[in-house]
């Protein structure tokens, strides 16, 4: 199954957040979308998931045009996502947060019970998922009471529990510390599968470079460049857009080196947002 954006634009009033963007994603790989703040990364995710309408262009999953469908239909077709700012059901337990994903998807299945998982099956899947994401010990804790890092992981688990073929991750590592980010990267890399496309929006370059099969760089709503991590790393336009001009970059490097010599600052390309 392949997901394709064809000449997609998104306007907010007079602001053009995305301009004529064409991208395609196939199952079996991890794709990263990077770009400076406000480049339009989250907007892309929101448009695919149906949270935002598309101003022009089309988004297709296989042969189906997604951009005309209501949001829940898009999710039913196999698109799941996380949010840039945590959006868990805080007043429900960790287990319940996953269970909800198995709510029967139509009146018919709801009433007849056909194709509907039994409670035991549902719980088995959810517990297996919790184990996979190291959340078993907190299954009965309220999601809102978890520490931030584990909430991020729970949201990740919620996006994967239904085995959706398209998974959109909007800054899964935002706000995590260095070790947590590393764990998160390993976890996501481990989730790569033949029948699944993972689309990752992330500011942490280490993570992006280490786990992506392809990186798409956005700047002011336009595609700047697209390719393997090595290609993107060496692309000058990317460095300029992302980090400033090369001279500025040199200055920053020097500064960082001197700081490191003093034994303080940890170089961090990610911009932490809460």
């Amino acid at each position: 199954m392949a997901l394709a954006l064809e000449n997609v634009s998104k306007h907010f009033g007079s602001l053009v957040a995305i301009r004529n963007l064409s991208l395609s994603f196939d199952v079996g790989s991890i794709y990263s979308i990077i770009g400076p703040n406000g480049a339009g990364k989250s907007t892309v995710v929101n448009m695919i998931a149906g949270s935002y309408s598309v101003t022009s262009g089309a988004i297709r999953l296989g042969a189906t045009a997604l951009n005309r469908l209501p949001k829940h239909r898009i999710a039913q077709l196999g698109v799941s996502r996380t949010y840039q700012n945590l959006r868990l059901f805080d007043g429900m337990t960790v287990l319940e947060n996953l269970e909800v994903c198995f709510f029967p998807q139509s009146w018919l299945t709801f009433l007849t019970g056909a194709k509907r998982l039994s409670k035991a099956e549902r719980l088995e899947i959810c517990h297996a998922c919790l184990a996979e994401f190291h959340l078993s010990d907190v299954a009965d804790v309220l999601a809102g009471d978890l520490p931030y890092g584990r909430q991020k992981i729970l949201e990740l688990a919620r996006a994967f529990v239904t085995q959706a073929p398209i998974v959109l991750l909007d800054e899964p590592a935002a706000g995590l510390n260095h070790t947590e980010t590393k764990d998160m990267a390993a976890m996501i890399a481990g989730l790569k599968r033949e029948d699944r496309a993972i689309i990752l929006v992330e500011h942490d370059m280490e993570m992006v470079m280490s786990i992506s099969d392809r990186i798409d760089v956005l700047n002011y709503g336009e595609l700047l460049c697209s390719g393997t991590p090595d290609l993107v790393r060496t692309n000058e336009r990317v460095q300029e857009a992302y980090l400033g001009t090369t001279e500025e970059l040199d200055d920053i490097r020097k500064l960082a080196q001197s700081r490191r010599a003093q034994g303080g600052l940890r170089a961090n390309a990610g911009i932490v947002r809460h």
Partner: peptide
């Protein structure tokens, strides 16, 4: 039941519930 859980989720964040493939109208 799962219906009750879906309702509680709806109370907390209706947009996310739709994002899970649940028809909130229903």
């Amino acid at each position: 039941s799962i219906l009750g859980k879906a309702w509680r989720a709806l109370r907390e964040d209706q947009d996310v519930v739709r994002g899970l493939g649940i028809n909130t109208t229903t």
